[in-house]
Amino acid sequence: MMPEKFEVFDASQNKVLASRSQIPVILAFAMTVHRAQGQTIKNLEIDCASFFAPGQLGVAVGRAVCKQGLCIRNLNMTSAFLKHPKSVYEFYEKPFKAVEADISCCSKV
């Protein structure tokens, strides 16, 4: 990226009052997938380099408003297809009444 010159020009005096040269940057923000939960983000870039747990990519992609504003970098197919423990799937397959009756998964041993 090349530096841009910015000038303040006074037309009444027909001269440049001030100038500077700088590299233009765009303000951006970074946050963790955990911090972004519950938000919708118009322009989203996801860096998957450090993903290690099941569901992280799904939660991150779920923040995007549309495909056009989504960019995925360093996609790690191994982490993208990690599965939750079998107990998680079993929990969600039970009818709610059965889950309500058996909350042993939530108690400390």
Rank of each mutant, 00 (worst) to 15 (best):
I26L: 09
P95M: 04
L75R: 02
L75K: 04
A80H: 03
Q22T: 08
F91S: 05
S21T: 15
A53C: 05
N43M: 13
I72V: 10
E90A: 05
A80W: 01
L82F: 08
P54L: 00
L57I: 06
K67A: 04
H34Q: 12
A64H: 07
S21H: 08
S19Q: 15
N43Y: 09
C66Y: 06
Y89M: 04
N74L: 00
N43G: 05
C71Q: 15
V88T: 13
Q39K: 14
A53W: 13
K15L: 15
Y89K: 11
A64P: 01
K94P: 11
G62Y: 04
R20G: 14
D10A: 14
G38Q: 09
F9P: 05
I72A: 06
A98I: 03
R73V: 08
A28W: 00
I23N: 06
L27N: 13
G55L: 01
L57Q: 01
E45V: 08
G55A: 07
I23W: 02
L70H: 03
A18Q: 12
E100M: 08
I23L: 13
P85L: 02
A18D: 11
N14R: 15
C66M: 14
K83R: 14
E7Q: 09
G55N: 04
S21L: 14
V65Y: 09
L44V: 06
P95I: 07
A18E: 12
A80C: 02
R35G: 00
P85G: 03
R20Y: 15
L82E: 01
A28T: 15
K15M: 15
V16T: 12
D47S: 08
F52M: 12
S87V: 09
F52R: 11
P85W: 09
Q37W: 07
E93I: 00
S12I: 09
E100Q: 12
G62S: 10
N43L: 12
I41T: 04
Q13K: 15
L44P: 04
M31N: 09
D47C: 01
N14V: 02
A53N: 05
